Simulated scan of single mutants.
Amino acid sequence: MESLDLSDADIIVSSSHAFAKGVLTTAEQLHISYIHSPMRYAWDLHFQYLRDYGLDTGIKGHLARWMFHRLRLWDRQTANNVDLFLANSDHVRQRIWRTYRRPARVLYPPVKVEKFGLQREKDDYYVSVSRLVSYKRMDLIVEAFRAMPGRKLVVIGDGPQMRSLQAHCPPNVTLMGWQTDEVVREYLANARAFVFAAHEDFGISPVEAQACGTPVIAYGVGGSAETVRDVRQLPEPTGLLFPQQTAASLMEAVEDFERLSGRISPDACRQWAEGFSEARFKREFSALVEEAWVCWKNDPQTLEQKMLGSGP
């Protein structure tokens, strides 16, 4: 990133989950960085990543810890190259403050909701679409449905956990592996509900499910708490949130969902999802950049204060 020569640009927009915000800029350039997450493997999920890749012990472990330490120093230092931080959720905004001690403005990312058709009639199965990696907690979802043999679960996606999930897959769970977009849309549209157990920064898939008129049962921490309207707490609900990242908590949530699902309208799910559309993103992003550029030209030193205030 530091090798990119962007000296001819007036405005630089970096879209970053790790390194993009580290581009070098001049005093005459406005740098807006859209942060999808401060790098998780260096901060929030550092120890989990070390365990997952066998780097928590031994010589390789010591080397990895040293490299991640240097990476954290670089990551925090390059935050000074950013004039205005944008966050893709309020959850990420809080993480930006904790990591860089900089305020950020929330701008939800674009979701291709127009590619998902509203389906009001549902089949009798639950679905989850995800990369099969540890932090997505697909093992938790499969464990929960193992204890609910009368309910069907379809899992779409592939990844490092596929083999271990296949080895312990109960009869009521179908592991489909990677599928085309058309197949994914079909299963999302016809499912009774979409199940999501990850602690995610935003989470595109739950919004795509709601665009189909399909309710979401999700772990109620992170982006899901912002993209799913809980049937027990909010009007015009679109799903149900469970409080603990455990199989028991998910099982209880499924029971509650089946008892309360009559209150959730497919049309309400679709209407809520349209609030995350690409058209909405383009409109809000363009207005935000225009506003930031005017503030920057008038007084660069007060840009952050005018756009965001000065606290978390």
Rank of each mutant, 00 (worst) to 15 (best):
D139H: 04
Y219V: 00
P266R: 08
L55P: 03
D267P: 06
L234V: 14
M39S: 14
M307I: 15
R98D: 13
G223N: 09
T227H: 10
A189H: 02
S89L: 03
N190R: 15
P266G: 07
G222K: 03
V216T: 01
Q210T: 08
R70T: 07
E182D: 15
R232S: 12
F276H: 01
S33W: 02
F116L: 08
G177D: 05
Q179V: 10
S249L: 00
H168T: 13
S130C: 08
Q245P: 03
E226L: 13
E182K: 11
H91M: 11
C295D: 12
H31R: 05
A209L: 08
K282M: 13
G22Y: 05
P160E: 07
G262E: 04
A144G: 01
P109R: 06
Q29E: 10
N80Y: 15
E278F: 11
P171C: 05
A20C: 08
C169W: 01
E208Y: 08
S3G: 13
E290P: 02
M148T: 00
E143W: 00
G203W: 06
P149W: 05
E291F: 02
G220C: 08
T302S: 15
V184G: 03
T214I: 06
L175I: 09
T246D: 03
F194P: 00
E143K: 00
E28K: 15
A198D: 03
S7V: 11
R185T: 06
S33M: 03
T238Q: 05
K21V: 05
A273Y: 04
L175M: 12
E226V: 13
A87Q: 07
V155S: 01
I204Q: 11
E278Q: 14
T227R: 09
L132M: 09
H62Y: 15
L86M: 12
V289R: 04
G58Q: 10
A147I: 00
F68Q: 02
S205V: 15
G22S: 14
S15Q: 11
G157Y: 04
M138D: 00
P38Q: 05
V106D: 03
K60N: 11
K115Q: 14
L260G: 04
V113G: 06
R280M: 11
D123Q: 14
H69G: 12
A292G: 05
A292L: 05
T78D: 04
L234Y: 14
G58P: 09
L84R: 00
Y187F: 11
L240V: 06
H91Q: 12
L132T: 04
Q161H: 09
V13Y: 07
D158L: 06
V173D: 01
L234M: 15
P38S: 06
S277C: 13
K115E: 14
F285D: 02
A87L: 08
